[in-house]
Nucleic acid binder design. Sequence first.
DNA 1: CCTATAATTCGCCAAATGACGAATTATAAT
DNA 2: ATTATAATTCGTCATTTGGCGAATTATAGG
Lengths: 121, 121
Amino acid sequence: MRLFMDIAKALADETRVRILAALRRQELCVCQIVELAQLAPSTVSKHMTVLRQARLVDSRKEGRWIYYRLADTAAPSAVQEGLTWVWASLRGDSRIKEDKKKLQSILKMGTEQLCKKQNQR
Amino acid sequence: MRLFMDIAKALADETRVRILAALRRQELCVCQIVELAQLAPSTVSKHMTVLRQARLVDSRKEGRWIYYRLADTAAPSAVQEGLTWVWASLRGDSRIKEDKKKLQSILKMGTEQLCKKQNQR
DNA sequence: CCTATAATTCGCCAAATGACGAATTATAAT
DNA sequence: ATTATAATTCGTCATTTGGCGAATTATAGG
């Protein structure tokens, strides 16, 4: 029950679901997610902690950047089946589509350039 | 996105998940759920509203009693696939098993007798 | 070594959530 | 009609949650 509830709670926030959907194509570092979600880094960081606690994402460190990716096939089945449910339910969702477009432009500019831009604010 | 989030939020509370699991075998009236969950009727009522809003349950009125049952095959696929995920993830869960046992004794005593017992408190 | 910076942790606040009891509504029974 | 009662709605409260900025940590680069 514990893991299941962690997953369900993690999925009960729209921002986190949008982040998961964004991670579906490729891994992302925090500053890229910040740009997508238009939230403070500290807020995104907290969301990522919730998602990792639920085993929905994994992370790896590369220099100063931390990259998050979707849980892989090594994840518990509750996680994998949960994600399957999410994808099926959000197929064609307009919000997710918008995010996908926005992501493309975020990915076009390099990671360094993106972080610079954020510091200017 | 809207319905999906309603479902995800509805599933993000352990009491509600337990109620859903209890409904898997048979429909239940509110007083039976009150007995199972050991919560105030008003609290259970609110939970049921959340579950119905998410389309996870339907209800029917019979006299003074309102019976809730799991969503059937007419429900949106997000609901059905969500429930499939729940069942798969909670298979063998000890809390759900305990509830199942408790439910049996609740079902043994008639509905009227049960409500009387609650009024005594 | 020292500075810059990507990310996290911490402390705080506003909003949402889950709980209860009291009041209300609707139905059954006297 | 009046009373009893199953369930809901309402008002209130404590806890949790999601957000931010400031402080902290860890790594890259001058």
